[in-house]
Amino acid sequence: MLTTLILFAAQAAAQPQSGTGQVIQRGGQIASRPVVDVGAKKTEIPPVLQRAAVNPYATAGMTSCPQLRSSLASLSAVLGPDFRVGANTQENRAGKLAEAGGKTLVNGLVPFRSLVREISGAAPAERRLNAAISAGHARRGFLRGLAVARKCRV
């Protein structure tokens, strides 16, 4: 019953162009939250983001356009698509409400959730992941600027 509700919420939140795999993945992320909160499942930071977190503005190994394109592709594979000028951003409000309801229901399963997350190490791990994601975005922007400056096709 709970899994069905969560999958429904994630499906409703999915954009029309989203695939079924993305809906299932989002529903799984919501459903597995309590397992992450108590520390039973560890959050892994992808290696490309670990490297970006060390120095998002490094230029070592970025001597050619193919190297820049490859690095940009690696980052986009983890971070999702980059911003595009003129892209139409529409939000599915009903879907977002359903997703929020699913998250609220699942988050309510762990009493004193924020305290449990700090004790279990889930909260610090999430902060490290968010910092790595921010560094990944900075790295992608830096590499895109470097590619434009070098007149690379990206």
Rank of each mutant, 00 (worst) to 15 (best):
S71Y: 04
T89R: 14
A53C: 07
S76N: 06
P124E: 05
S76T: 15
A98R: 00
L75C: 06
A58M: 10
G80L: 00
M62Q: 15
A58W: 05
S120D: 08
L75K: 04
N55Q: 07
P56M: 02
A98N: 01
G95T: 05
P56I: 00
S70L: 00
P66D: 11
A73M: 02
T63C: 02
E126L: 03
P111L: 01
V106K: 12
R128V: 09
R93S: 12
V78D: 08
V116Q: 09
L72G: 14
R128K: 08
G61F: 08
E99R: 10
R69K: 15
P111W: 04
P124F: 11
T59M: 09
R127W: 04
S114A: 11
N55F: 09
L72S: 11
A94C: 07
E99S: 11
P124D: 04
E99F: 04
L75W: 00
T59Y: 01
S70Q: 13
K96R: 15
L115A: 14
S114R: 10
E126P: 02
A98I: 01
G80M: 08
S74N: 06
F112S: 14
P56H: 03
R51C: 10
A125Q: 15
S74V: 01
M62H: 06
E118L: 02
R69Q: 15
P66N: 01
A52K: 15
K103W: 02
R117N: 10
P56S: 04
S74Y: 00
S70P: 05
F112K: 10
V106M: 12
P111N: 06
V110I: 13
D82C: 06
V110H: 02
N88E: 15
E118P: 02
A60Y: 04
R84Y: 05
P124Q: 03
N107Y: 10
P56G: 06
V106W: 07
G80C: 00
E99T: 02
A52V: 14
V110D: 03
R51H: 14
R93C: 08
A100P: 08
Q50C: 04
F83K: 12
